[in-house]
Nucleic acid binder design. Structure first.
Length: 324
DNA sequence: CATCAGGGCCCTG
DNA sequence: CAGGGCCCTGAT
């Protein structure tokens, strides 16, 4: 059992997201599998973060409304942080929690949508969130591949326990990720022992690329969608399915809807057409024809809505499609 | 018990 | 560009 690190120093700042901003629906995604690096309760969110080699604990509190959003961020750390460090950290936090991207056009354009206006209204101000760093997201995409939820969860938790730390702040104990070099320096077999299977090689290669600073996430944030896509596909172990998540969830391309994995296809078939299985092409053109430029964001609203429902009530047909 | 596909990806031919 | 192989797990 590793020692728990107490983060005793803290400082707070108020941030103002661009409206509309739905705090809970943006920060918490019920469709995602649970992971011990973060915790959500209505209006509050805790997550561990590594920034420039420093281990931090963030607490975010909702202090505003969708139309007048306001978020209080408390940064917990072991040592007092310099002003310079905090400045870079705050702009990173603004990116990660998607405080500044503009979805007001989407908001206006589909207000009167004949099919989904109630749903758009219900989740007004919901955006994708890249609460994890790019490296951490890639780790998650790798453990998602060809695995059930349970297996994905256990692979990630094994990695946390082997390579990460446990931190305590605001009465929460959370896992942290690790520096890519920690994985780059261990043999592949260490990862295989954690039951990563063939993904071990992917994780090692990606960790190596990050350790050698071959990937510039800031540059990637500036790229147009097609360039970014090509760039991301160069990452070893990252293919079309992972890139599909990456473009939307990590780089906020709201129109990035090109492929739909089988289980999502089944669920969307039911939700959109009330059928068992509709061809992917038909689902794609439904979004393209009706929600141009906002295809994936629209998909996201429909998608998360059913998973929010699942939190409060049992949805038998959905349960069957989730490989737990 | 064995067999097999899978919420992919890489590599080979 | 099609298809085999890969770690494991759960379904049959």
């Amino acid at each position: 059992m590793k020692k728990i690190i107490n983060l005793n120093k803290k400082s707070s700042i108020i941030l103002y997201p661009l409206p509309p901003y739905n705090f809970d629906a943006t920060i918490h995604k019920p469709s995602h599998f649970p992971s011990s690096d973060n915790k959500w309760e209505k209006g509050n969110y805790w997550i561990s973060m590594l920034w420039k080699g420093t281990c931090l604990g963030l607490k975010l509190e909702n202090k505003g409304t969708i139309a007048k959003p306001k978020v209080r961020v408390t940064i917990h750390s072991l040592k007092i942080l310099s002003k310079r460090f905090k400045q870079s950290l705050i702009s990173e936090i603004e990116w990660r929690f998607n405080l500044k991207s503009d979805i007001s056009e989407f908001d206006k354009r589909f207000k009167k949508d004949k099919t989904f206006s109630p749903l758009f209204k219900k989740w007004r101000g919901m955006k994708p969130v890249a609460a994890n760093s790019l490296y951490e997201s890639l780790v998650i995409y790798i453990v998602l591949q060809n695995a059930t939820v349970k297996r994905t969860y256990s692979m990630l938790e094994s990695l946390f326990n082997r390579f990460g730390e446990k931190i305590k702040f605001d009465n929460k104990i959370l896992s942290t990720f690790w520096d890519p070099k920690d994985i780059n320096k261990v043999p592949e077999q260490t990862l295989r022992d954690l039951k990563l299977g063939y993904r071990a090689k992917f994780l090692k290669r990606i960790s190596e690329q990050f350790d050698k600073k071959e990937i510039d996430k800031f540059k990637m944030r500036e790229m147009d969608k097609e360039t970014l896509k090509k760039e991301a596909l160069k990452l070893y172990g990252i293919g079309p399915a992972s890139v599909e998540y990456l473009l939307f969830e990590d780089f906020y391309h709201y129109d990035a809807l090109e492929t739909i994995p089988p289980w999502e296809q089944k669920i969307m078939s039911k939700l959109l057409f009330n059928k068992k299985l509709v061809p992917v092409g038909k689902i794609l053109s439904f979004f393209r024809d009706n929600y141009k430029n906002w295809e994936k964001l629209t998909f996201h609203y429909i998608w998360e809505d059913i998973f929010w429902k699942r939190k409060n009530q049992y949805v038998p047909w959905l349960e069957k499609e989730i490989r737990l």
